[in-house]
Nucleic acid binder design. Structure first.
Lengths: 267, 267
DNA sequence: AGACTCTTGCGCATAACGCGCAGTCATGCG
DNA sequence: CGCATGACTGCGCGTTATGCGCAAGAGTCT
């Protein structure tokens, strides 16, 4: 808080509100050690500037793609997915061109890449597209195709045709389920075929799947996991799960869900 | 309110809140002819269900793609754009395949098409994509391409390549400016070329532009307006403006911003 | 008919709100 | 240096919205 105390506090309020999705006057008051009046004044000002929306006991973020929207946060395995996304984002080097699949975990990765610079991101998912739509420092290519409403993913001939026109340094795939035997499990054969095509166009392939997805086979369309691919999961994966993959020449990474423990509990 | 009065009222409250973006307890109370207590109870219940967010004097919608988000509503010329969108949506017949450009007015059209059935929508704009992403009754194709951050539009080789694989019953184009002499004015030559290609693939071409855009030339990339195209604008266009277009064989439609006069002022 | 549920309207205590006033601190000017 | 100015904060006030309990009405099932 070096330059301007109140200004910095307002920015921090905004950050907290967008991170948490919701922030109460009382929490903020305690967090900054100022009276509720001051917080209220800040909120009034931020609201007048159209930067957040006032609620009864506090304020909420109004934009839908903040650091972690309320909706996202309520998603299951949020911490794990975020840990995986952070590890994956750290792999991406400046100047690279990467391909992002659809899915919530890869969407979280897209969010992490918002701060990247000198990066080209191509994607087959609406989530990633939306996460990066307003980021000027990232060049975004959409592969297009038929939109699957449930998974928010693009599939089909248009997608495959677009894929033939590009190659990538890294591709990050999602999965509905992953087993060491079968590989990636999806609901739809078009999706599995697309994943195979995507991997074929990239120098390095990563599969992002939190531990609960390991060993699961909720559907019946499969794409095999070749040697050399990297499976990124979280640290709650069992040793047996991990061993099954490593024995087959799959590199397994366990992302640790550290980071910020709880964003807004006392200061 | 035939089946269940309170249930229906809550749904209506939700609709009003999402339409208006914001609804006050007092307004709602007057609108339904019930006490503020009842409204408060309704709001508490809807909030508990996570369907809207409570504010001090009322409630606000929390999702970003409702009938008309707060953001949209604050957009200039909202009523005009909506009137244009409604007229355009009424042209679309069941079973057709239509192409939607980027832009806020066309985005409003996409919103109107949410209730359509047996319809295929292809688009070069992220706005339309997002409007229709969760609608199961509409088949959505994204043409893909490079995402222009400012206009949320796809342009470039991928988009053009995808266009070559489809034709359309109707295409709805947007414009940064429209003049009778020059035609459609845009910031970028890639955009104007794309619009020409789009029109070439469609049986009928509509240009959606509210009256304030007529005669304006904010940039310097142009696409001519051939005879047979339809320019859809709002009723605030001057006779001179309209005449300039009709003299050149352009059909001009003036959409009347009627519908709901003011969604929530007394009932 | 009687009991039950759901809902509504009303009154009241409480909490959050906006506003005005005074005090503090940093900055700028004569 | 002295003083005025402006931004910010804390405090107390009256106002307003809120939540809860209670009683009454409408509809349903036994």
């Amino acid at each position: 808080m070096s330059p301007n105390g109140s200004q910095a506090r307002r920015e921090e309020i905004l950050r907290l509100a967008t991170t948490t999705g919701l922030a109460s006057v009382e929490e903020l008051s305690r967090h900054f050690g100022v009276t509720a009046s001051t917080i209220r004044r800040d909120l009034a000002r931020l609201t007048a500037d159209g930067r957040l929306a006032r609620t009864y006991g506090g304020a909420m973020a109004l934009n839908a793609h903040p650091e972690a929207s309320l909706r996202q946060r309520t998603t299951e395995a949020y911490a794990q997915k975020r840990a995986i996304a952070r590890w994956a984002a750290a792999q991406v080097q400046p100047g690279e061109t990467v391909l992002l699949d659809a899915g919530s975990t890869v969407g979280a990765l897209a969010h992490e890449l918002r701060t990247a610079r000198d990066l080209t991101v191509a994607t087959t998912g609406l989530t990633a597209l939306h996460e990066l739509a307003d980021v000027e420092s990232v060049h975004v290519e959409c592969l297009g195709g038929t939109l699957r409403p449930l998974s928010q993913a693009f599939v089909g001939p248009l997608t495959e045709a677009a894929l033939e026109r590009m190659t990538f340094d890294r591709v990050f795939l999602s999965a509905d389920g992953v087993t060491a035997d079968g590989g990636i499990c999806e609901a739809d054969l078009r999706q599995t075929r697309l994943k195979e095509l995507m991997a074929r166009r990239a120098a390095r392939t990563y599969v992002l799947a939190h531990a609960a997805k390991l060993g699961r086979a909720p559907f019946h369309a499969w794409a095999t996991l070749p040697q050399g691919w990297t499976l990124v999961t979280d640290s709650s994966a069992t040793d047996a799960d991990v061993a099954a993959f490593t024995e087959r020449g799959i590199r397994v990474v366990l992302a640790e869900p550290v980071g910020e423990p709880a964003p807004l509990q006392e200061g």
